[in-house]
Computed example of a mutant assay.
Amino acid sequence: MKVFSTIADLKAEIAAQKAAGKTIGLVPTMGALHAGHASLVKKCAAENDVTVVSVFVNPTQFNDKNDLKNYPRTLEKDTELLQSVGCNLIFAPSEDEIYPEPDTRVFDFAPLDKVMEGKYRPGHFNGVAQIVSKLFDIVTPDKAYFGEKDFQQLAIIREMVKQLGLPLEIIACPIVREADGLALSSRNARLTDSQRKKAVTISKVLFESRNFAPSKSIAELTDWVIDNVNKESELRVEYFEIVDGNTLQAVSDWNQTDYIVGCITVFCGEVRLIDNIRYK
């Protein structure tokens, strides 16, 4: 496994691999890797000759300076994990390497980026598109792998690939959960032991909510989920929306579409956690 910190060196390595007829897979990450990331890397390694993993905490997608400052950075530990799951090339650049000058590009993914995360974190998805498009340009992968936990991000990246006409395939990978159901997240490391026990309420309520769909109306189920998560001390729902899985627009009736997903964001103390569940 090789580790690169400059774009020029990584591009040279990838050019050599492509000249040898090798296929390239990319797993973009912000580090603080866990078993969810490992599952993406393993799938990538199984489907491509060369697996590239980027480790870069991208400042342009944070609209909260404290969140950026507190985001865990564990490159040494990440490198050990990646070595064990089939990664071939790590790209761990500095901020100056990626942004030698400000990226002023503005993307428009309406209506996908105007709801949920887009509403509560203005500019977030523009920052995601900036870094992911840069990585696609640098690595020129045949396939790129993203987790379904970031459901809205996945839809937006697919739209970006379509808009830019990029010749690569986006592979969605299922949510990986702890044994008790909590969705794996790098942010989980910031939870206290007490908060960690309470955070599992999020997934428990989501799983239970499937028992009431479609007997409850969309509005009734939305209220039920929010109320039952908020009952747990230290948990505060920022939003829970039941949406069309393709358009990300809120639905008002279970028969409106055959692909319905519930997306939730919850503050556990000061830590912001996301999850989602498919209803149909």
Score class of each variant (00 low, 15 high):
89 L>M: 14
90 I>F: 14
90 I>Y: 06
90 I>G: 07
91 F>N: 05
92 A>I: 08
92 A>Y: 08
93 P>N: 10
94 S>T: 15
95 E>W: 00
95 E>V: 15
96 D>H: 11
99 Y>A: 13
99 Y>P: 14
99 Y>S: 14
101 E>K: 04
101 E>P: 02
102 P>N: 14
103 D>L: 10
105 R>E: 14
106 V>E: 13
107 F>K: 06
108 D>Q: 01
110 A>T: 15
110 A>R: 03
110 A>W: 05
111 P>G: 08
111 P>C: 09
112 L>I: 11
112 L>P: 04
114 K>M: 03
114 K>C: 14
115 V>R: 00
115 V>L: 09
116 M>Y: 02
116 M>E: 09
116 M>S: 10
116 M>Q: 11
117 E>L: 08
118 G>I: 04
123 G>L: 01
124 H>I: 07
127 G>P: 12
127 G>V: 09
129 A>W: 03
130 Q>E: 04
132 V>F: 02
133 S>V: 04
134 K>Y: 04
134 K>D: 03
135 L>C: 10
136 F>G: 02
137 D>S: 12
139 V>K: 04
140 T>D: 11
141 P>N: 07
144 A>V: 14
145 Y>H: 10
146 F>N: 12
146 F>Q: 09
147 G>A: 11
147 G>D: 05
148 E>V: 09
148 E>M: 14
149 K>D: 12
152 Q>F: 08
152 Q>C: 11
152 Q>T: 11
154 L>I: 13
154 L>H: 11
154 L>W: 03
155 A>N: 13
155 A>V: 07
156 I>M: 08
157 I>P: 11
157 I>V: 15
158 R>H: 06
158 R>N: 13
159 E>A: 12
159 E>C: 09
160 M>A: 10
160 M>P: 08
160 M>I: 04
162 K>R: 15
163 Q>H: 08
163 Q>G: 09
163 Q>L: 12
164 L>V: 02
164 L>N: 04
165 G>R: 06
165 G>Y: 06
167 P>W: 06
168 L>H: 05
169 E>Q: 10
171 I>F: 03
171 I>W: 03
172 A>K: 06
173 C>T: 15
174 P>G: 10
176 V>G: 05
177 R>T: 03
178 E>F: 05
179 A>N: 08
180 D>C: 01
180 D>N: 15
180 D>E: 15
